[in-house]
Structure formats: C-alpha cells, structure tokens
Design a protein around this nucleic acid. Sequence first.
DNA 1: TTTGATCCTG
DNA 2: CAGGATCAAA
Length: 978
Amino acid sequence: MMSSEEEADSAPYSDKLLKKQKRARQRVDAGEPRNSYSTLATNGLAPARAAHMSGGLYGAIFEGRQHFGIFRPGYAPADMLNELLGRAPADASDEPSGGDIAHRVLRDILQNRNKEFLRLSPDNNNVLANNNNDEPKEKRSPERPVSRESRPDLDDALLGLDSAGDSRTSPPPAQSAAEPLLAPKSEPEDRDSDAQRSSPRPLDVKRARVENIVSTMRASPAPQQPQVNGCKKRKLYHPQQHDGAAERYGTSHGSSAQTVSDDSEDDNERQPPIQQKLVEKNALKSQLRTMQEQLAEMQEKYMQLCNRMGQESETIENDGASSDVEQNDETVPKSEPASPAKEVPPPIPSSAPPNMLSQVMSKMMSAKMHAHAAAHPHLPPGFNGTLPMLPHLPPTDHIHPPHPHQHLNNAAAMYLNVSQKLFLEQEARMKEAVEQHQQQNNQQQRPQSNQHSPQQRQMGPTPKPPMSSELAERLDALRSNSGSVGPVTGADLEGLAEVLKSEITASLATLIDSIVTRFVHQRRIIGKQSEAAAAAAEQLNKDLMRATRMLERKSPTPKMPERPSGQMSGNNPVHHPGAPNGVPFITHNPMLMSQMNGPRAPGGAAFPLHAEAGGPGHGAQVRPPTGMFQTPPKTLGSLYSAMNGHFERENPEQNEALSLVVTPKKKRHKVTDTRITPRTVSRILGEGVGTPETKFPESPSPRPYPGGMALPTSVAIPNPSLHESQVFSPYSPFFGAGGGLARSPPAPERDSPPLPHAPVLLHPALMAAAHHASPDYMRHHHAHAPLHAAQHHPQHMDVQDPHSDCNSTDLPYDGVQPTSSTLTPMHLRKAKLMFFWVRYPSSAVLKMYFPDIKFNKNNTAQLVKWFSNFREFYYIQMEKYARQAISEGLKTAEDLHVAGDSELYRVLNLHYNRNNHIEVPPNFRYVVEQTLREFFRAIQGGKDAEQSWKKSIYKVISRLDDPVPEYFKSPNFLEQLE
DNA sequence: TTTGATCCTG
DNA sequence: CAGGATCAAA
C-alpha cells in the first residue's frame, strides 16, 4: 500500500511545483500582497460584535448540546459492519460457526425440498465430476465442499478482501473443484488449434468444431476462484480454456482475485441488497437456462456419437467413469492418444437443429425410459421425475449401460426437471433471503460470497450465469466426457444435476451464512452495547440527579431560541429513549446539562464560570477544577439507538470527516488512502447528532449570578470564516451564553499553569461503555465524581497508572497494531480532543497516539494538517475574542479570563469536543486564557500591524503543550468516540 | 534545496 | 477540512 501511495505522490508533487511556480510568478506580477493579517482585525469585527451585543445574549449556561436523545441511527449496523470488517481475526473465527449454522439450516431446507429431486438421481453423480477433479472425494458431498469453498469468499468479502491473496495462496480443499472454472469454456480458437495439433484426426476436428459451438452456447462459467494452484494441471487439461481465462480475466489468478475482491467490496458498499439478490437471481436463472441449453446440446452430440459409434462399432472405453481426475488424463490418452480428451469437444451434428433433436430425444427418452426403467439398476420404477438421487453413489456407472441413450435421455430429462425445480426453489429462496436480509440490516454489505459476482463480471462474450467451481467443473467434465470419451452417461447428467443442485445450495448457503453471521454479530454487538448503555445510563442518571438538584439553585440561562435538537428535529423519529434501565433521560434540557458540569462546588459557585460575575469572586480564583462542560454522553444516545434498533439516519451534525470520506473517492492521486471503509461510512452516517443542543423550550430568566453578570461579554462577531457560524447566530443557544470572555476585575492570579497532566476524564458514560479500559482507570473514574475525578489524581492516568501507563509504548493497551492507513472521522475526533492538550504535536507524538494507524507520508501529513487546521481555528477565535475584549475597553490582559461557560470556551468546545466526549482539561482553559492575553497584548500594543505578529504568540503557545493522556492511545478510546 | 508552518481559498 | 501557495528555517 505504502509503496503505491508513495508513488502516487510523486506525480502530484511535480504538478504542485509547477503550479506553485506559476502562481508565484503571477503574484509577483500582480504585485499581490502576500498576507493581509490586519484584515480580520480591522474589518468587521467591531460591527458584528456590536450587533451581537445589542442582541443581548445572555449567558445561557452551557447548554448541553445534546447528547441526550441523540440517536444515531445506523449506529448498530455500523458497528456490526465494523465488527465484520474491522476485526478480521474475530470474523474469521466467528464466521465458521455462523456459517455452519446457516449452512445446516439451508441444507436441511434444501434437502427436504430436494428430496423429490434426489429421488430421481440414478446413482452416479460422480462420474462426471470425477473427470476433472483432482480430488474427487471432496465432491462426494457437494454441499460440504461447496460451503467450504464459499466461505473463503465470504470472508474475503467481509474482510475487505485483503485476505483474498491468502486464500489463494492456500487453496481450500475444494479448490480443485474451482479449477475448471478458471477456464472459460469459450476459447474456440485455442481449443481447436490444440485439438488439431494434438489430434489431427477428422473426428477430433469435428469434435473441436462441435465444442466450439457448444462452448459458445454455454456461458462459460466464470472462473471462480482463481485460487487454483493447479494451473498447470488445468492447463494440461484445458489449455484453451485456460488461455482464454487468462486473457479475459487477467493472467494471474492473483490479479483476478484481486479484482474480484475489490469489486465485491465496492458492490457491498453501493449495491443495495435487493439489487444484488436480483442480480444473482437473474444470474442463476440464466445459468439454469444455459445449462438446459447445454444439456440439449449435449444430448444432440450424444446422439450423434452414439449413432456414429454404433456404426463404427466403436467401443467406448472410458466414459469418464474413472473417478479420478488424474485418471482422466490417463484415460483420455487411451481413447484419444493424440489429444487431450477433455478439451476435445464432443462432435456435434451440425446439421441437426438442436430443437428438433431435443424434441426427438424427448420422445425417445420418454418412450425408452419406461422400457428400461426396470432394467436399469439405478432407475427405480417411478423414474420419470421421481427417482431418488443418490448423491454419493459410487461411480459405478462406468459400466456402460446397455442403453446409453436411454440412460442419457433419462438423465437429461431428469436434469431438466431438476433444474427447473431447483430454479424455482432457488428463486423462492432468494426472495426469502432478500427479505430476510433487508430486515436484518440495512447494511449494504454483500452477504454472499463473491463467488457469483466475480464470475459475472468476468463473463466472457456470452453472458454467463455465475457458476460455482464445482458446477463448472462438472460441466466441464461432462463436456469432456461426451467429447473425448464419447457417450455421456446418464450418470454424468445426473452428476451435472447434482452439481447444479449443490451449487445452488452452496450459494444459498453462503447467502444464508452471511446473513446469519451478520445477525449474530449484530446480536452480539447490541448486547454489548446494552451493557455499556446500562452502565452509562446509571452513571448518567446520577449525574442528572445531581444536576437537577443544583439546577434548583441556579437560574436558567437566558433564552435561546429553540434549537432543534438533533433528535428533536423532525428527522429523528427516534423514540425518546427512556433509559433502558428505566432511567429516564432527563435531558434535553440544556440547563440541566450545564448544571452537570460543576456539580462539585458547593455554592453553585463551584464554577467560576463567570469570573467576572463577581459573585463570589473567589470562585473565579480557583480554577475550575473540572472541565468546562459537562459531558453529556452522546454515546448514550447512540447506545440507546442501537439498543432500540433505531437505525434511522439522523441529521448529520457535522461533517467533520465527511470531507475526508468524500475526498477519497474523488481523489485523483491516492491522497492519503482515502478509501472509505464501511466502518467509516457507517460512522459518518450515524455520527451526526444534529446539533446536539437539546432544545431549549423556554428562555430562562437571566442568570441569577450575584454579580449581575449576564455580561454580554460574548459579543463575538459572527465570523464568516467560522465553520460553525451557527455558534454565533443570535438564535443559537451557544451564542450569548452567559458570557464569552469572562473578565473578572479582581482576577486573582490564576495564571500559573495548571498541573502538568491535566486530568481529563472521559465522560462516565463513556467510561462505562469502555469495558476494556484499564481497570485502574475505570476505578478512578468511578470512585470520583465522574467529572472531576481526575483532578485529584492528575498523574494516575498518564504516569502512574500501572495498567494504562505505557508511556512511550505504541501499543499500550491491547497491543494495538496498525491496521489501516486510513484516518477516519473517528480519528479526526480523537485528534480534536487531543488538541486540548497539544497544539503543536510532533508527528512522532501523533503517531504514538494513533497506534492503529499505519502511518505513511500521506496520512501523516494529513494528521499534521488537521492540527494545523485546528490551530488555525483556534487562533482565529483567539484573535477575535481578544479584539473584542479590547473593543470593550478592557485595559489589561490580566483582566481577561476565560470562564468555563464563556462563549469562547463554548465555541472551542463545540469545535473540538462537539459531542463532549471528554471533559475539557483545565489546562486547556488556561492555555486559552494565555493565548487570549497574548493576543490582547499584541493587539493592544499595535503589534498586529506587523507582518508576522502572530508568530511570537504561536511560539509562546507552543510551549504550553501538555502531555496527552495515555488513554488516548487505547483502542477503546477511539471506539468510544462513536 | 528541502521541509515545515502558515495563509488563503473552496 | 483539504489543497495550494508562500515564506522561512534548516
């Protein structure tokens, strides 16, 4: 991967350079000024601010955006998909069990249904199959082999096909069966040439011609799994076919397999299940038809042969009776020394119209059938259509039945019937499967093995229905037999029928397997989530209770126009999630949420949110211990949604990663591996929680703060450049919340940098959900109030926690190994959260904290770019607020204080911690404050007139980075960000 | 010259 | 957020 990506870069780079130069030239010519630093400063800010101020936004306490009630439809499915796709190993192991069950079920069903068909079968189903098989034994029980064979496919599909190569390398037992498939039957030229070369005899030539015709007629079974190690053999056996296959499908199995894999992957993502099913159905249908046609054709040929043989008194030595494939080679030579028997097409009476022949044959068959039924050992009396099929009968039929024709005819007739029935069955099953599939989940994933799809794709000129390797093989064998050896026995036909049956069965099995598997996964995941949700719910409930209590003391924030909460918005039909535990979700009320933040401080002052509020100013002095915002678990929402099975999509709250995801597709050169994984997609779909803010029905009365604060401090001017302009919207709950920058005149000194290791905690809900988190870590969290626990043990997480502490280790927690080089939206979220600690992380640090990423030049650059973007946003905010403060007459930087509930803080939190996945580390607040002051001073001092006046600030700020908590390295952390 | 960071734009 | 341009430090 890396190599390819790297290569991809080279081109772009050169282009870049060219462009750059060009641009540079243009700029110079135009005398275009490079930067207009002052733009922001001088323009617009003041006016906008004024407007806002007049608007009187009072600080609503931080309204919890959300979180509650946010349902993330699709979450469960996504997760499931993730499970399937992301955890290859697990899947691999799981797959079988699920598959087996499905398999069994399917088999049972089919067997019951097929009993009637089976009854028909004369015995030797194997004869034909054996001709080309390397491992005839495998075929004895068609279903088994097939299933096995199919499984790899399924796995591949599920796993994203990376494993395709592996499967190829180590061909499954059934592989031999697949072999024939590789060789598309339609390569007349080659075949002819070969045939002629090897067997110049007229007969051969004739046969070749026939073969030609036949091959054209029959859709060539697409080469199933390229994983045929027996290339040589195959070549030996079917040179032409092989060639054809090579040409058409790409010479290398690997390549073809790859293609298949990729395609299937794509299909999974794009093609709706139903469509897929339909396609498959059609394919099967056509396959059946094709086979029928082929059968007819073969009948013709057979007739011809018989006639001729009768005339010539030719003895047929080997009817392909040999049960060994290998044998085939040997046998063939005997009969047709010069030419590879298998490849020699059966002679066809070109003169006789197929239809007529068929009709004639039908008549003959019916007539003779009865006559010989009794005589024929394998044909029970009721033969006509109801003979029990003995799938595993030994190839006894080598014996040439006295009346080959009849046998053949019978078999043919039966085959046709069976085919029809099977087809009907298949169709019915398909429908069922489709329905089931739909109901079970909306995942686009393509359940069945790609057995079929690849074939379809690879089909040659004649659209051919997908055929399994076994089927193809048998057909091939059949053809070979008829061609080279001569008479096709009824057994052969039956074998064919059986193959067909098993093939269908297999495909169904596969389908069912996948469905079942998915179902199982889903169940499992849901269960898991339920647990987490329950725990989370409890915790949440506690928090809420506390918050409620506190709320009583506090007055609601000023109004915010109702903001449709993600869930509330019409899109979300979601039921209100009562907590599963019976814990009602209290939320939706931002007030509550806001209260939750600072439950700890005794006099509601716990939070010096508004420093200036004056109130008990001292409160301000003490740095708010905990994060600024409460952390309502959006996770809960998702959990619940999953639990409730809400998969509806909700309004995407953010598209953060959206771009990431999207870009990938349009990328011209592989930018960072932009390939979107299903997981990513699902995440994106489920991610948005609309604006989390819960709606605020009524506008609360102004803040009760003693200081009469309600300072319109937050008079930010809507910055057009802001991505989240909503934040500034007067209608936005965020806007005007209690006070942007809190300026407390008596600002005591809180400039001292906070503790080195900011104790940031995950929201309790998150923690609860994180089973895997190190026990120690968990313990801490639970022990302390969820919100501030860490404060008391600042160090425990990063340094001292024996379990979680794995400093300088890339694989702190479960030995995470880089699995992908794709940065997903989740990674973006994580990166944003990390920004609370580090503004200038080195790439080395970043790599350490993203152990699951296989870094390369591209994604490293991307990650770095993210932080660059984060900083950009951050500094823009800082500058904006600093200017605002200045315009408001603030005299000294020291008067600038950033309160937990300040607008600035809110904005930042919204940007970096949109879903309040974590508690904002106190240190961050400090850093923000410092940054703000730096900007304030600079602007105040007129430094902003200088070209790079910000640089010095950056420098200062860059020194304020703190170590990122170790738990960020945990794979579980990422998972919790859902 | 290369690399890294910022600025600018979409 | 990503791509491109530009500057500046290495």
